[in-house]
Every structure is written in C-alpha cells, then in structure tokens.
Amino acid sequence: MSKQKALNMLGLAMRAGKLVTGEEMTIQKIRTQKVKLALVAEDAGENTQKKVKDKSTFYQVPFVNCFRSEEISQAIGKSRMVIGVLDNGFANKIKELISS
C-alpha cells in the first residue's frame, strides 16, 4: 500500500514541476546537486542503473530502485526509467513511504 502512495506522490511531484525525467537530465541535475532523490526502474538496463547509482553515491544523493518502469511511467504520465526528485519535501515523503 505504501508503494502505491509513493507512486501517487511521484505523480503529484510531476504535476507540481518538481521532477526531472530521463537518464541524462537526471544525471546532469545530480551533478549540480539539485536532485534530492534519484529513482531508477528495477527493470532498467544494468549500465543505466550503475551509472545513476554511481553518480548518486558520489554526490551523496539517495538512490531508490524499487519500482518497475510501467509503475513509474503510469505514475508520472510519461514513459521513463530514470527520475530525479528536485524537492526536499517530496523526496523525504517518498523515502518514508518506501521504507514503511
């Protein structure tokens, strides 16, 4: 249930303009330390997961890969594998919902 609530928060963050989507855009925002939480689909390619995870680790950005690409795409209304949350409030709430 909390997983669905986390996906709903992603949709809300998307409508609020607090997400960056796509691998390159997310990595670019991680480098400038604007991303507060990086999400990668668990069914994304190995290279994509490693690249985003390594960048997240280096820049000390929390990293999550517990959703499938269909779930992420449905939540935000776009077909994406990589998402960066730009707002602390949304990032903290999503992390809280995922861990509960």
Rank of each mutant, 00 (worst) to 15 (best):
S2T: 08
T57H: 08
K51T: 15
Q4F: 00
K18C: 09
G22D: 01
Q4N: 12
F63V: 11
N92C: 04
A44D: 07
T21V: 15
F90S: 07
E96F: 04
K53P: 00
I27N: 04
I76Q: 12
K5N: 04
L7S: 06
G84V: 04
T32V: 11
N92E: 15
R68S: 15
S56N: 12
R80W: 06
G89N: 08
K51F: 09
K95G: 02
K36C: 07
M1D: 02
I94K: 01
F90G: 04
T26R: 02
G45Q: 09
V85D: 08
K55G: 06
I83K: 02
Q60D: 15
I94D: 04
M81L: 14
M1H: 10
M9K: 12
E46S: 13
S56K: 06
R68W: 08
A13V: 02
V61Y: 10
L97M: 10
G77C: 09
T21A: 07
V85A: 04
R31L: 14
T26M: 03
N47K: 14
A38E: 07
K18S: 11
T48Q: 13
A91S: 09
A44L: 07
N8Q: 11
I30R: 03
A13M: 03
D54L: 11
V35Q: 03
C66L: 14
N65Y: 13
E24C: 00
Q49C: 08
S99C: 01
T21D: 00
K78S: 04
V20S: 05
